[in-house]
Simulated assay, not measured.
Amino acid sequence: MQINNQTLGNFITIIQTKDIQNFIPLLKELEFGDKFSLSVLRWCGIKERQKTLAFWQVYLATLETETIGVMGLYQMVNSSPNIVWVGWFGLRPKYRQQGLGTVMMNLLKKYALEFGFKQLWVFTNTNNFAALSFYEKAGFIKLGSAEEICPDKTYKLSDIIFKYELEEAHEQ
Protein backbone atom coordinates (compact mmCIF):
# COMPACT_ATOMS: atom_id res chain seq x y z
CA MET A 1 0.00 0.00 0.00
CA GLN A 2 1.41 3.39 -0.95
CA ILE A 3 0.38 6.49 0.98
CA ASN A 4 0.97 9.95 -0.41
CA ASN A 5 1.76 12.35 2.37
CA GLN A 6 1.07 15.48 0.34
CA THR A 7 2.03 17.96 3.03
CA LEU A 8 5.52 16.50 3.09
CA GLY A 9 5.73 15.59 -0.59
CA ASN A 10 6.80 12.06 0.35
CA PHE A 11 5.50 8.64 -0.55
CA ILE A 12 5.34 6.19 2.32
CA THR A 13 4.84 2.56 1.44
CA ILE A 14 3.44 0.27 4.13
CA ILE A 15 4.42 -3.38 3.92
CA GLN A 16 2.93 -6.11 6.06
CA THR A 17 5.76 -8.54 6.68
CA LYS A 18 7.20 -11.32 8.76
CA ASP A 19 10.56 -11.30 6.95
CA ILE A 20 13.12 -10.54 9.64
CA GLN A 21 15.62 -9.29 7.05
CA ASN A 22 13.39 -6.25 6.61
CA PHE A 23 13.85 -5.35 10.27
CA ILE A 24 17.65 -5.34 10.44
CA PRO A 25 18.15 -1.60 9.66
CA LEU A 26 15.58 -0.74 12.33
CA LEU A 27 16.98 -3.05 14.98
CA LYS A 28 20.34 -1.36 14.61
CA GLU A 29 18.98 2.17 15.11
CA LEU A 30 15.93 1.94 17.33
CA GLU A 31 16.69 1.70 20.99
CA PHE A 32 13.99 -0.74 22.00
CA GLY A 33 16.48 -3.12 23.57
CA ASP A 34 16.88 -6.87 23.56
CA LYS A 35 13.24 -7.63 24.43
CA PHE A 36 12.14 -5.81 21.28
CA SER A 37 14.57 -7.74 19.13
CA LEU A 38 13.50 -11.06 20.64
CA SER A 39 9.82 -10.28 20.24
CA VAL A 40 10.31 -9.36 16.57
CA LEU A 41 12.18 -12.62 16.01
CA ARG A 42 9.44 -14.64 17.69
CA TRP A 43 6.58 -12.83 15.99
CA CYS A 44 8.22 -13.38 12.62
CA GLY A 45 8.47 -17.11 13.27
CA ILE A 46 12.11 -17.40 14.30
CA LYS A 47 12.36 -19.29 17.58
CA GLU A 48 9.21 -20.23 19.44
CA ARG A 49 6.36 -17.79 18.99
CA GLN A 50 4.51 -16.59 22.06
CA LYS A 51 1.35 -18.61 22.60
CA THR A 52 -0.28 -15.76 24.49
CA LEU A 53 -1.16 -13.88 21.29
CA ALA A 54 -4.53 -14.26 19.59
CA PHE A 55 -3.78 -11.73 16.85
CA TRP A 56 -0.73 -9.93 15.51
CA GLN A 57 0.33 -7.88 12.50
CA VAL A 58 3.68 -6.24 11.73
CA TYR A 59 4.11 -3.39 9.25
CA LEU A 60 7.17 -1.63 7.91
CA ALA A 61 7.09 1.92 6.59
CA THR A 62 9.40 2.67 3.71
CA LEU A 63 10.24 5.93 2.02
CA GLU A 64 11.44 5.33 -1.51
CA THR A 65 13.70 2.29 -0.98
CA GLU A 66 14.62 2.83 2.67
CA THR A 67 12.89 1.27 5.67
CA ILE A 68 12.10 4.15 8.01
CA GLY A 69 9.82 2.70 10.65
CA VAL A 70 7.96 -0.21 12.16
CA MET A 71 4.53 -0.56 13.69
CA GLY A 72 2.37 -3.42 14.75
CA LEU A 73 -0.86 -4.55 16.32
CA TYR A 74 -1.34 -7.43 18.72
CA GLN A 75 -3.95 -8.89 21.00
CA MET A 76 -3.31 -11.16 23.94
CA VAL A 77 -5.40 -14.32 24.28
CA ASN A 78 -6.98 -13.19 27.55
CA SER A 79 -7.74 -9.62 26.42
CA SER A 80 -11.09 -8.07 25.73
CA PRO A 81 -12.06 -8.73 22.09
CA ASN A 82 -12.46 -4.97 21.62
CA ILE A 83 -8.88 -4.08 22.58
CA VAL A 84 -5.78 -4.29 20.40
CA TRP A 85 -2.33 -3.08 21.45
CA VAL A 86 0.21 -1.03 19.52
CA GLY A 87 3.33 -3.10 19.06
CA TRP A 88 6.79 -1.84 18.21
CA PHE A 89 5.97 1.63 17.06
CA GLY A 90 9.21 3.30 16.04
CA LEU A 91 10.69 5.64 13.48
CA ARG A 92 14.39 5.90 12.62
CA PRO A 93 15.87 9.02 14.26
CA LYS A 94 16.63 10.94 11.06
CA TYR A 95 12.94 10.73 10.05
CA ARG A 96 11.46 12.00 13.30
CA GLN A 97 9.83 15.42 13.74
CA GLN A 98 8.67 15.48 10.09
CA GLY A 99 5.08 14.27 10.50
CA LEU A 100 5.86 10.75 9.33
CA GLY A 101 5.15 9.20 12.73
CA THR A 102 1.72 10.83 12.71
CA VAL A 103 1.02 9.37 9.26
CA MET A 104 2.08 5.94 10.49
CA MET A 105 -0.04 6.16 13.65
CA ASN A 106 -3.10 7.26 11.68
CA LEU A 107 -2.66 4.24 9.42
CA LEU A 108 -2.29 1.95 12.42
CA LYS A 109 -5.55 3.33 13.87
CA LYS A 110 -7.24 2.70 10.52
CA TYR A 111 -5.95 -0.88 10.38
CA ALA A 112 -7.13 -1.58 13.94
CA LEU A 113 -10.59 -0.28 13.10
CA GLU A 114 -10.71 -2.33 9.88
CA PHE A 115 -9.93 -5.47 11.93
CA GLY A 116 -12.98 -4.65 14.07
CA PHE A 117 -11.30 -3.42 17.23
CA LYS A 118 -12.83 -0.57 19.22
CA GLN A 119 -9.85 0.52 21.34
CA LEU A 120 -6.16 0.83 20.63
CA TRP A 121 -3.95 0.61 23.72
CA VAL A 122 -0.24 1.28 24.06
CA PHE A 123 2.33 1.25 26.83
CA THR A 124 5.53 3.21 27.05
CA ASN A 125 8.26 3.88 29.56
CA THR A 126 7.63 6.65 32.07
CA ASN A 127 10.94 8.28 31.09
CA ASN A 128 10.28 8.28 27.34
CA PHE A 129 9.05 11.87 27.19
CA ALA A 130 9.02 11.97 23.38
CA ALA A 131 6.72 8.93 23.23
CA LEU A 132 4.47 10.24 26.00
CA SER A 133 4.05 13.52 24.13
CA PHE A 134 3.55 11.77 20.79
CA TYR A 135 0.74 9.53 22.07
CA GLU A 136 -1.02 12.44 23.76
CA LYS A 137 -0.82 14.51 20.54
CA ALA A 138 -2.17 11.50 18.63
CA GLY A 139 -5.31 11.56 20.78
CA PHE A 140 -4.49 8.81 23.24
CA ILE A 141 -5.72 9.23 26.82
CA LYS A 142 -3.46 8.27 29.70
CA LEU A 143 -5.03 5.56 31.85
CA GLY A 144 -2.27 5.17 34.44
CA SER A 145 0.58 2.86 35.29
CA ALA A 146 0.75 -0.76 34.16
CA GLU A 147 0.74 -1.78 37.79
CA GLU A 148 -2.70 -0.17 38.19
CA ILE A 149 -4.25 -0.96 34.81
CA CYS A 150 -2.90 -4.27 33.56
CA PRO A 151 0.06 -5.65 35.49
CA ASP A 152 0.17 -8.88 33.46
CA LYS A 153 0.44 -7.27 30.01
CA THR A 154 3.68 -5.25 30.04
CA TYR A 155 7.33 -5.83 30.81
CA LYS A 156 7.57 -3.08 33.42
CA LEU A 157 4.97 -2.24 36.02
CA SER A 158 6.09 1.38 35.83
CA ASP A 159 5.06 1.66 32.15
CA ILE A 160 2.33 4.17 31.34
CA ILE A 161 -0.76 2.83 29.58
CA PHE A 162 -2.69 4.91 27.04
CA LYS A 163 -5.86 4.13 25.09
CA TYR A 164 -7.47 5.49 21.96
CA GLU A 165 -11.19 5.09 21.20
CA LEU A 166 -11.35 3.95 17.58
CA GLU A 167 -15.14 4.20 17.18
CA GLU A 168 -15.25 7.86 18.21
CA ALA A 169 -12.56 8.77 15.70
CA HIS A 170 -14.37 6.87 12.95
CA GLU A 171 -17.70 8.60 13.62
CA GLN A 172 -16.23 12.11 13.45
Rank of each mutant, 00 (worst) to 15 (best):
L30F: 12
K51S: 14
I15A: 06
G45I: 02
L100T: 05
Y155T: 00
L8T: 15
Y59I: 02
N10C: 10
L157V: 01
N10S: 14
Y164Q: 09
K153H: 11
N128G: 04
Q57V: 11
F140S: 09
Q172C: 05
S145H: 00
E147I: 06
I15M: 07
K35N: 13
K137V: 02
A169F: 08
I141Q: 03
T126H: 01
N128Y: 08
P93E: 12
I83C: 08
Y135F: 10
L143R: 03
W56D: 13
E171F: 08
N78W: 13
G139I: 06
S39C: 07
L108S: 04
K156C: 05
M105P: 01
T67W: 07
L30C: 07
N22Y: 11
G116A: 05
T17W: 04
N4K: 13
I24P: 00
K156T: 01
I20S: 00
T13M: 13
D34V: 12
L157I: 02
L63E: 15
L26Y: 09
Y135P: 03
M105Y: 06
K153Q: 12
F115I: 07
I12K: 03
V122M: 07
N128I: 00
E64L: 07
G45H: 00
P93M: 11
M76L: 12
T124R: 05
L27K: 05
Y95Q: 10
L132V: 04
H170A: 11
S79W: 10
E31F: 09
F123H: 09
A61G: 13
E168I: 03
F11I: 15
E165M: 01
T62G: 04
F129L: 11
A146P: 00
K94V: 14
E167M: 02
E31Q: 14
L113T: 12
T13E: 15
M105E: 13
E66P: 01
W121Q: 14
T13I: 13
